[in-house]
Design a protein around this nucleic acid. Structure first.
Lengths: 156, 156
DNA sequence: CACCTTGAGTTCCAAAAGGGAACTTTGCTA
DNA sequence: TAGCAAAGTTCCCTTTTGGAACTCAAGGTG
């Protein structure tokens, strides 16, 4: 399989990965959620080379995950911001961070903590069911074919 | 930055990505959650080349995300299964699928649906707060430095 | 017994992607 | 006039993929 075909697979994992399934892209998004907006600051904080960064930002913009908007006119300078579609990736980032906190934290503990503004407490993200609000773990889920499933073979 | 340094960064995103931040790795895990276990079946379902698959599986095993266990002795054959550490990636996969369902679904709709065994309903995954159980979105979260944060500079 | 099949890899080579560093462009500032 | 800053591009060389063929061990088949 070549990556240019990924976005056309009948699988939401594959389609999502066609947008964000790349280390640099996820790291760029991490910074974006921490309110980094400018080319040079992404470069400085990530240690990414400029031409890779330019490519990733261009892709994120073309996918509608970020927008490139001018923040000054003379000379023209642009910054990158998350769109609503990009903000929806928050759950993906939180899930990734949480797994790292559980399984990859160093001796000194977590690098970041999260406070829930609504209740004021430090918290861990928990996946729950939109219907009953109960916790959802791997064994609680049964996977069924949906309307967009491939015809005969079972692909996810 | 080279990838071999990623796992040593003081950031749970970076550390998680050092394990799963690769398209093929995530697709292998998707299949693993759908109960695929054998080398040939991963190959067939993903269209991945054999030597890339071998490398990814070896890495997942060395990270403790999967285990390689024999399922027959003569001739010796092995299969790959998720460990508890691997099963904990479920939230990451669910978050990725859900974003794809929201933003990348084709005209025919979702390829897969999820049923919550506990309540019996088809559901969407929702991220919630471990303390108050309320929904958590990007704007509800305040990020603070934790004990494992880098000294002076602020990196996530 | 000679040969074919299966599962799980490994090896080889050409093509694509990535890392590093220097160069470009536009206008501002000393 | 020179220097600087932000945001990219270009060039070149190294590393990683994709694709296909080859290996190995143990059965099964005629």
């Amino acid at each position: 399989m070549r990556w240019d075909r990924l976005g056309r697979e009948a699988c939401s994992v594959a389609r999502t990965l066609s947008v964000i399934g790349d280390r640099w892209t996820l790291l760029v998004l991490r910074e974006a959620f921490l309110r980094v907006r400018r080319f040079e600051e992404f470069e400085r904080r990530l240690g990414i080379t400029r031409h890779i960064l330019a490519g990733r930002l261009k892709q994120l913009v073309s996918e509608g995950v970020m927008v490139r908007i001018p923040y000054q006119v003379r000379p023209k300078r642009y910054e990158y911001r998350l769109t609503p579609k990009g903000l929806d990736l928050h759950m993906v980032l939180m899930a990734i961070v949480h797994w790292g906190d559980l399984h990859m934290a160093g001796a000194r503990g977590r690098p970041k903590l999260f406070k829930h503004r609504a209740c004021g407490h430090l918290f861990d993200p928990v996946l729950s069911c939109s219907v009953c609000r109960g916790t959802v773990t791997a064994r609680d889920v049964r996977v069924l074919d949906g309307p967009g499933a491939p015809e005969a073979a079972s692909e996810s």
